[in-house]
Nucleic acid binder design. Structure first.
Lengths: 159, 159
DNA sequence: TTTTCAAATGTTATGATATAACATAACACT
DNA sequence: AGTGTTATGTTATATCATAACATTTGAAAA
């Protein structure tokens, strides 16, 4: 994948995101686009401060960390971004460009490079999960699962 | 469950933990016992600084935060304590008193009060999880799952 | 059009979690 | 007692996150 392809994809996804925001009556401002665009370009789980650095060094834009946190909150509300609590990092949703409504996701997080893959577990698995949780007397709040993994490249690199 | 019962259980578990450490040729020092004992008495997921406070206020012992972190690392290596990355808190392993070797755990974490229940998922669920992860081209590092839930009391309290 | 209100962003301070680096103390083995 | 290793103490700092208040921007009413 070339750099141009990537940038094309980014602006494609950004315009989808903007449509979704318009449809919901909220504004995807320039700063918000900047943050989302950074997340898309970095293409892995990053911290709020990583975004600040990326904006400054790669895009020549100064964004206060406080603003990044607020914008990340907004983007999460709009289901454009997920927070990965396992590693205290943020990642763009893989389904921004889809029209169907958003399902709950499971995240495979590479412990080594923080690359993230968002997958759907099989139906049986989620049903069983819910059953096991309720048997234990708890109520499932969010079936979002965050799973410590290694991606293929990092597995190879460690050999 | 009365307070005395609880304290009896704590010292019972501590002596199991000590046996395990002796068997492995490592030392469960007084400070380490203090930290493990605090975790057992608090009986929920707590931060390192919560442990510092508990030691000071409830047990009259001053333990520097730095020491608590080191001791938590040690206790994790000995599989006496788990770190819950989802909430950046620590909890005593529920199986310290068991003799059989330790399996991988799933944690139900109450988002409201941080009570934690450690459960085993059904075999099919774990096998499916592993299959789904590997189909996605990742390698499962730790099938430890941390799941956002509400415990019964907090569900009731929110009604 | 300008006034006005709400939303967005900026600014500063601080809290919460965690680790690095080096010093000292305790223990265990000669 | 001497020596090396392990454990703990101490200080500083990195990293992640929010609170509180000021300013700016944008959109809609007057």
């Amino acid at each position: 994948m070339t750099s141009v392809d990537t940038l094309d994809q980014v602006s494609e996804i950004l315009s989808h995101a903007e449509k979704k925001c318009v449809a919901r009556g909220v504004r995807l401002t320039d700063k918000r686009k900047l943050v989302l665009s950074s997340l898309l370009q970095m293409n892995k789980a990053v911290s709020a401060y990583d975004i600040v650095d990326y904006c400054k060094k790669q895009l020549g834009e100064i964004v206060p960390a406080m603003s990044v946190y607020r914008i990340l909150d907004f983007l999460q509300e709009q289901q454009l971004v997920h927070k990965l609590n396992l590693v205290n990092k943020y990642v763009a949703c893989c389904e921004i460009a889809c029209d169907h409504s958003h399902e709950v996701s499971q995240f495979l997080i590479c412990s080594s490079c923080h690359k993230v893959k968002e997958i759907k577990l099989g139906k049986i698995t989620e049903a069983e999960l819910r059953r096991d949780v309720e048997e234990a007397g708890f109520k499932l709040v969010s079936p979002q699962l965050e799973i410590n993994c290694l991606c293929e490249e990092c597995v190879k690199a460690s050999n």
